[in-house]
Amino acid sequence: MASSRNTSLSRSVDRVTGGVLGLLALVSGGMVLLILWHLFAGAWPAIEAGRLGAFFTDAKWQPGSQRDPQFGIVTMLAGSALVTLLAVVLALPVGLASAIFHRFYAPPLLERWNRRIMELLIGVPSVVFGFWGLMVVVPAILRIAPGTPGQSLLAGGIVLALMILPLIALTSQAALQAVPSFLLQAAAGLGLGRARTILSIALPAARGGITTGVFLGLARALGETMAVVLVCGNIPQIPDSLFDPIRPITSTIALEMGYATASHKALLFCAGLVLMLCTALLVGWISFRKNTADSAIGGA
């Protein structure tokens, strides 16, 4: 008797818990949809007026010009893409090196501190990174390349690289940690050295996790705003060199949203929508990769 009452009680507790959790999950998922809807509603006047075409056919972005207003977004898409890629190119070797050191070389004390510092780096507000970039990275670039503006693609890449470095390092660490120990033991049994084990066994086995880290870094860098607005120079142009200023989409939204009139504002919403689409594609790609990786392991 008593035990059956207990089961039915626990069953109803289960049902309530499940319901509450489901509701909360629905709320967090719904938030994204709400944001999307808001973006879409803001962008609608421009879409309705058929001005999306100007996004890709206009050469320049000069919405405030009285004489020749233009709304080309291509230079800014390029800016976003270039600065994001540069950041990953800079952050990946360092992050990977840090993860390998952490997993295979660091003494326990150093290992713990390395991890703590990486976690601390995640918590630094982006405006602090941006200000540091403006006061330290930009003057350093000026010493290498005098006569340039200093605020540039390179400055943006360096600052963003620092911001996504912990993300890549920590996911790579976790991926390396998850490499099955029998693989490493087998490598030791075959008489492989530590460097060979890392290169030929551990890294290939951890590839999936490391790639996920890189994509998360890409998504983070693509959406970053406060730091890039301070160091990129914000000139909407295709850069000729690393030392030329660029303007990512996020910068444009941050610089102009508060000051835009009706039609200009709708175009900024459109730009936000395009950015959201890019991020969605990235996230979609991550989960697609994960699924194929999982099924590959399952098949093996």
């Binding site: 000069q62 004489r67 503006p149 200093g150 605020q151 607005v229 301070l230 000139i235 303007r247």
Partner: peptide
């Protein structure tokens, strides 16, 4: 504004000041 050929575009007043101090 289409006539202006800028090297750097900034937002707030303080951002201008920091750009001048930095370069």
């Amino acid at each position: 504004n289409a006539d202006v050929k800028a090297d750097v575009i900034v937002g707030e007043n303080l951002h201008v000041i920091h750009s001048v101090v930095g370069n």
